[in-house]
Amino acid sequence: MEKASVSDDSPDSSANCDWSQLQADLLLQIFGTLEIPDLFSLGAVCRSWHLIYLEARRLPRCSPNQSPCLVYSSGDRDADTVTLHNMSTNKLYHVTLSEPAFRTRHVMGSSHGWLITADKRSNLILVNPATGAQMAMPPPETMNNVRLRYTEEGVLDGYDVLYISVLFGF
């Protein structure tokens, strides 16, 4: 039986591959399993991967097994920039968010990589700082039991929550 041999002058098999032609849905699945540093790095590989990276940032597909990151607004960056400090690698990553500026928001809580932030008017905005995705929640005044409270000068001063007691006769 004859053995197959590889000559030294044969081209490397990966050198002939055009990695930029990988299917977008496959790349989205791969990007969704990566750690934040790898996700950011792959977005810089080539133009087609950068477009998929931007798509991945809009989708809540980040892996739940991410290394922990501290999230804050750094004084040496713009007010709309979120700084992610990866605790396992000690690297910093910066993500620019759209208005309102991240530094002007209050962080109310977090869950599964999403932050619950509130702007000056108490409008809630869900933010995924790793991807830059944001989702505005309905404003408080759209709830039936919430009324806006203004000062005499017409400046918003807060909200009144009206409690309605409903008794059901059974």
Rank of each mutant, 00 (worst) to 15 (best):
L70T: 07
M1S: 10
I36V: 14
Q29C: 13
L124A: 10
D18C: 06
P138R: 12
T96C: 10
L27V: 14
V95S: 03
P100N: 09
T104M: 05
L51C: 15
S14T: 11
V127A: 04
L126S: 07
L97D: 01
A24F: 09
N123I: 07
D119R: 02
L124D: 03
H112D: 14
T117G: 06
N65P: 02
M143T: 07
A4Y: 09
L51D: 13
S165G: 12
E2F: 05
G113E: 04
I30M: 07
D80L: 02
H85R: 05
A118Y: 01
D157Y: 03
G43A: 12
Q66L: 10
S5R: 15
S7M: 11
Y163N: 04
M137L: 13
V6T: 08
L54M: 15
G113L: 02
G32L: 04
C46S: 08
P129I: 02
R57Q: 14
M135G: 08
P139R: 14
M143C: 15
N123D: 10
Y72M: 01
A15M: 08
F170W: 13
G158W: 10
T142R: 15
L115Y: 08
S41R: 15
D76T: 05
R47K: 11
F170K: 09
D78T: 05
D8Y: 05
D80T: 04
L124W: 05
L124M: 13
I36M: 03
E153V: 08
V82W: 03
I36G: 02
R147F: 11
S165A: 14
E99G: 07
C46N: 08
C62K: 03
M87R: 13
